[in-house]
Structures are given as C-alpha cells and as structure tokens.
Computed example of a mutant assay.
Amino acid sequence: MKVPDDVPLASVCLLGCAVGTGWGAAVNSAQVRPGHTVIVMGIGGIGINAVQGAAHAGASNVIAVDPVAFKREKAKELGATHAVESMAEATELARQFTNGQGADSAIVTVGITTGEHVAQAVSAIRKAGTAVVTGLGDFTAVGVPISLGELTLFQKRLQGSLYGQSNANTDILGQIELYRSGALKLDELITRTYSLDEVAQGYQDMHDGLNLRGVVRFDR
C-alpha cells in the first residue's frame, strides 16, 4: 500500500503500529459503544490511541490511568474525560459513573504488562464487561490472579488483542481519512523528532516518560 502524497510521512508512520493497535483495541477488541465507560491503563503510544478510539466510538467516560503527569495531561487533550494515577482511582470513578457496576471495558496497554495489571482490569469491569490486553511483558510469565468465580458468575470477558484486531490493508487507509478530517490526531502525538544520531536520546526520553511518541527523521 502506498501512502498518499498529500499526507506527511513523519505523522502517518505512526499508523504502522501504535495507532492501529490502540485505536483497534478500543473500537474492535473492546467494542466500545456510545455511552460506555472505558478505562485505559497506561498512556504511552498505544494507550493514547486507545483513548482516541474510545472517544471516537462515543464513550461517555474515558478514564486514562498513568503515574506520569505529562501523559495524563496529554490524554485529556486527546479525548480522555478523566485522568488519574492509579487503577484504584479509576475503578472507583468507573463505579461512580455506573451506579456501582464498573467500567464497560478496561484496556491494558502498560509497557511491561504483568498478571497483576490484567487482574486489576478484570476487577474494574462490570458484569459481562470486557478486559482487553494488548500490552506485553515477560513472554514466559504465566498466571493471572483473578477470581474464577468472578470470571464465570459475572460472565466477564478477557480478550487478547494483536494490532487491535486491525486489517492493515483496509484500516490504515480509513485512519488516513480520519486524520485528514481531523477526527484522528497524529501530529499531536509526536512530542519530539530525532535525527539518526539522536536515537539513544530518544530511547532515554521514552524511558523517562517524556514522550508520547518520538519519531526519527532520516532527513535531519
């Protein structure tokens, strides 16, 4: 697929992974609907686009969770209605909005995902709600400390999500149109650009929580 000539490569390069994964995690995997309450755990390159996707799908409440203040601020600029530091706060907010029931969905996009993160998401959702896991951690790790009784009797759904269940051949073209119309923000995701010899600084900024997305420009 060739990118149209009228869109900047420095922005649409984000469609190769982060945008499609996060957007699709909300729209496809969590199946967010108008009026829903959604929790997004982890506001990095994927999580911020899960926020955008949930907002675009019509969620009434989009609760972003991240310990980094900068990322919470950006989440509110890009579609989150609320932004908090912890899942405990997010879970309580979701219950306040839903008469004690819990979020319709919780999307886990933490950079190094553990079983505890997944368990927190499952606990935060209502009966028949959906916990979506698109973050990765130790590939050999096993075990998620969730209640089997809660899983069965509350009919909760635990859904893995690879690339947001997106089809790159069709969805990227659709996302380009959303970008053209202003419904999908890409330029605003790029906190800083780097030249090739600044790549190490880019990684450091990522680890320090200074970027939503850093983009390497080969023409600099």
Rank of each mutant, 00 (worst) to 15 (best):
I146L: 14
Q201T: 12
D171R: 00
V51T: 08
G102Y: 07
G16A: 14
A128W: 12
V216R: 01
V12F: 11
Q165T: 04
I172H: 08
E188I: 02
D187N: 11
I190T: 08
A88W: 09
A103Y: 07
A75S: 13
Q159W: 02
D6R: 13
A18C: 14
S181V: 05
V118A: 12
N169Q: 14
V38K: 01
A75G: 09
K127S: 12
T134V: 15
S105W: 08
V108A: 11
P34S: 06
I172D: 03
V7F: 12
V27P: 00
K76C: 13
P4R: 10
G202M: 05
H56L: 12
L148K: 10
T134W: 03
V65C: 03
Y194P: 02
G143C: 10
R192W: 07
T191K: 00
V27A: 05
K185P: 01
E198I: 05
S123E: 15
R192G: 05
Y179A: 01
L148W: 12
L14I: 08
L14Y: 06
A30P: 04
Q96T: 12
G53E: 00
R157H: 13
A103T: 09
K127D: 10
D104I: 05
I46D: 00
G35T: 05
V38N: 04
G182T: 05
L178E: 08
S181A: 15
I39Y: 04
D104L: 04
G42V: 02
M206W: 07
T140E: 14
S181E: 15
A75C: 10
A83P: 01
I172G: 03
G45Y: 02
I107G: 02
E77M: 12
R180L: 08
A54N: 04
K127F: 12
G164T: 00
A55R: 09
Q175G: 00
L173D: 11
F70C: 05
Q204F: 03
V199A: 15
A57E: 07
F218E: 05
M1V: 12
L186I: 00
A88E: 15
D138V: 13
R213D: 00
T113P: 04
R157F: 08
L151C: 07
K2N: 12
G35Y: 03
I48T: 03
H117I: 10
M1N: 11
G45K: 03
A200T: 13
P34F: 02
G202P: 04
S123I: 05
T170S: 11
F218D: 05
G209I: 02
H207Y: 13
S105R: 08
G53S: 04
V144T: 14
A83E: 00
L212R: 00
L196N: 01
T113S: 14
N167K: 15
G44A: 10
G115R: 14
S161T: 01
Q120S: 13
K76F: 03
G53T: 01
Y194S: 06
T114Y: 10
A83W: 00
V216L: 03
L186M: 09
G182D: 09
P145V: 11
R217G: 03
A106E: 05
S166C: 15
L15T: 06
H207W: 07
S86R: 13
N169H: 14
D219A: 06
A69N: 09
D197I: 06
E177D: 15
S105Q: 08
I63S: 04
L78F: 14
V12D: 06
T134D: 06
I39M: 06
G160N: 07
